[in-house]
Design a protein around this nucleic acid. Structure first.
Lengths: 189, 189
DNA sequence: AATAATAAAGAATAGGTGTTCTTTATAGAC
DNA sequence: GTCTATAAAGAACACCTATTCTTTATTATT
C-alpha cells in the first residue's frame, strides 16, 4: 500500500559526511544537508530525530566505514606491514579533506561530552593497536630492541592526528608519505 | 569632551580567545562574546566591523601573543635546546584547551581561503624553523649525522598538530611530554 | 480502477543570530 | 556649572536555522 522510500540511508550518510567535512557541524545548514542528500525534510526527522542525533549517526558510520578500513590493518597485528598499511590508507582517507572525527572533536569537543568520549575511545584504541603492532614488530626483529614501545605508540598516535590537520592544508600528499617514512625509518634495526 | 572608553582591546582579544576555544567560530554567539568581554555591542562593531573580521584579528593576536612565544624558541636557532623549549611551551599552551589556530583551520579551512592561507604560512614557517634547528643540532653533533633533516622537520611539524588535538582530549599532559621524549630521543647519536 | 498508506515537496513556525538604532550616562572643554 | 561629544546599555530589526505541518503524489493491495 505505502509508497516505497526513494532514499537509501547508507547513501545519505555518505553524502552527509562530505557536507560536514566541508562546513563543520554548525556551518552545515539543514537546508544544504537536505538538498545534497537524496532526502526530504520530514523523512529526515522521522529517521534521525534531530541534527545532533544525525551527527552522531554520521560519525558512527564514518568510523565504521572509513576509519575502520585503515585501523583494521593494525588489528591484523602483523608488525610493520600493518603499520605501513594503516598509514597508506589513512593518508588516502584524509588527503584534501581532513578527518571528520578530528574536525568534530576540535569544533565540539569542549561542549559535547559524548563527542569527547568518542574521541578518547578512538585515541585509546589507536594507541593500543599501535602498541600491539610494535610489540609484534619487535618480536619479528623488524624494529630495534631498545625502542620504548609505549612511548612510540603514543608518538604515532599524535602523529596521526597531525596528518588529519595537514590533510586539509596540504594539496600534495606526497609530503605526508615522506613524513611517514621519516617516522618509521629510524625504528629499523 | 568625550567619555573615555572603559574597554581595553588587548583584554577583549584575550577573553575572546577563550570563547572561541570553547565553542568554535559558529558556536560562539555574539551575545556570549559581548557578555564575556568587557565590551558593548556598538563599540564592538565600530572597532571590528563584523564577527568574521573580529575572528581574523583575534587569530592574529593569538599568533603574536601565544604561538609566537613558543615558536621564538625555534627562531633563536640553538639546536635541540630550542626544540625542547618549543615543545615545553607549546604543550603548556594547548593543554586542556587545544590550539585556536588548529581549531579554526579544521572548522573553516575548507570554506575560508584566508584561514587556509594563514594555516599554510604557519605550517611552512614551523617546518622551516624546525629544519633550521635540526641543521644546527647536526652541526653541534647533538643528533645523528645520517638523519634526513627535511623529513624529520616535516615529521615534527605533523607531530605538533597532533598535540593540538590531543590537548583537547587528554586531561593529563604528562603523556604529551613523554611522547616528546619518544620522538626526540631517537635522534640522539 | 478505487483506496489506503505513506513518501516527497516545500510552506510555515518558533526561536536564535549578527547587526543596527535609540536612549541614557558621563567625562572633559569652556 | 553648562554643554557637548561620545561611551555604555540594551531594545529593535532583518535574516537565518532547526523543526513541524500541510499538501500533493505515488505505490501496492483489494
Amino acid at each position: 500500500m505505502p509508497r516505497k522510500a526513494l532514499y537509501n540511508v547508507e547513501e545519505v550518510l555518505e553524502q552527509a559526511i562530505a557536507v560536514f567535512l566541508e562546513h563543520g557541524y554548525h556551518g552545515a545548514a539543514m537546508d544544504e544537508i537536505i538538498a545534497r542528500t537524496d532526502f526530504n525534510r520530514r523523512g529526515f526527522y522521522i529517521e534521525f530525530g534531530s541534527k545532533q542525533q544525525f551527527l552522531y549517526i554520521v560519525l558512527a558510520h564514518y568510523q565504521e566505514q572509513h576509519l575502520a578500513k585503515a585501523i583494521s590493518h593494525l588489528e591484523h597485528n602483523q608488525g610493520m606491514l600493518s603499520i605501513h598499511g594503516f598509514f597508506t590508507d589513512y593518508i588516502d582517507l584524509v588527503k584534501g579533506r581532513g578527518c571528520l572525527l578530528i574536525n568534530i572533536i576540535t569544533e565540539l569537543g569542549f561542549d559535547d561530552l559524548k563527542i569527547r568520549d568518542i574521541g578518547r575511545h578512538y585515541l585509546d584504541r589507536l594507541q593500543i593497536d599501535f602498541i600491539g603492532c610494535l610489540e609484534k614488530a619487535q618480536k619479528l626483529g623488524e624494529i630495534r630492541q631498545d625502542i620504548n614501545i609505549e612511548s612510540t605508540g603514543l608518538q604515532l598516535c599524535s602523529y596521526v592526528q597531525g596528518f588529519a590537520v595537514n590533510g586539509i592544508l596540504a594539496g600534495d600528499t606526497d609530503e605526508l608519505m615522506l613524513a611517514t617514512q621519516a617516522i618509521l625509518g629510524p625504528l629499523k634495526p
